[in-house]
Design a protein around this nucleic acid. Structure first.
Lengths: 143, 143
DNA sequence: TCATTACTGGTAATGGTTTCCATTACAGAA
DNA sequence: TTCTGTAATGGAAACCATTACCAGTAATGA
């Protein structure tokens, strides 16, 4: 073996498989809405799964870094996470009451962003596009 | 006098004019980029204007509530404020390095948002659309 | 099994924002 | 102008989500 595994460490990039990591991922998979790290932690604790809050944050961050999870900030400034179905770039339509989330795509928005940015001489552009509203069910319930 | 002014208080809605309020507004007017409450506070203190941080937050919030100031969260979660030129609904193209800000309007985005939301049965919709990038000057400087 | 070292998680520290509350000072009334 | 009620102020303390520390634990390759 040319490379001393011990010295080189893990094949660089592949994290170890741990009970906690799986738990966090599973908890996230069980929810279709965006949830905060704290909520997820509480959910796990509630089910008797011992996981530290620090660890929950770490795994969520790792999932975000590896593009497996989407993050966004709610209007009130909370950071929430979600395991999205589609891989490609997309946005979200989120119910501000029940958190129900619909993944949406917006070719037009992408084009618009690109065009505007170019016109103003901006490069390396990224955009934040999130839509919040009240879903039909919640609207009916609160009518 | 039918209504006892003392009991009724100010004509309801009109805030008192104070040195601090004017200072915060002036400080904000002196900047064309989005700035945080802390930055504004430091700027005022630096110029020898005695204003408490609490007061800065209060005035900024009041200005936001009265739609005179725009707020947004930077990608790293900081809340920043800006006194915008146009009254109407608009968005921003912000340089992530120097903070230079361009007000942009997006009829297409508005339409898109509305259409999508309606199709999914969402009502009372609001959207967050902010574009971050590197402006031409900063791009040149860092090339 | 063993050694290596990444992972874990309780606690403490951060840092931006808000709350408290005693003090100050606008602004209408007299 | 002076008086008064009360909104505005601001330092300190409280909040709270997130991060840093670091000693103990456990996953993995040999």
């Amino acid at each position: 073996m040319g490379i001393p595994a011990a010295a080189a460490g893990r094949p660089a990039g592949l994290p170890r498989v741990t009970r906690q990591g799986a738990a966090v991922r599973a908890a996230l998979a069980s929810r279709t809405e965006f949830v905060s790290a704290q909520e997820l932690h509480a959910q796990l604790r509630g089910k008797g799964v011992g996981v530290g809050l620090t660890t929950v944050y770490r795994h969520l961050q790792a999932l975000v870094d590896s593009k497996q999870v989407d993050v966004l900030q709610t209007p009130d400034g909370q950071t929430v996470y979600r395991l999205c179905a589609r891989e490609e770039h997309h946005h979200h339509l989120v119910c501000r009451h029940c958190g129900r989330t619909v993944e949406i795509e917006g070719r037009e928005v992408e084009r618009w962003t690109y065009r505007i940015a170019e016109a103003e001489g901006f490069v390396d552009v990224e955009h934040t596009v999130e839509v919040f509203g009240t879903c039909g069910e919640c609207a009916a319930r609160r009518s």
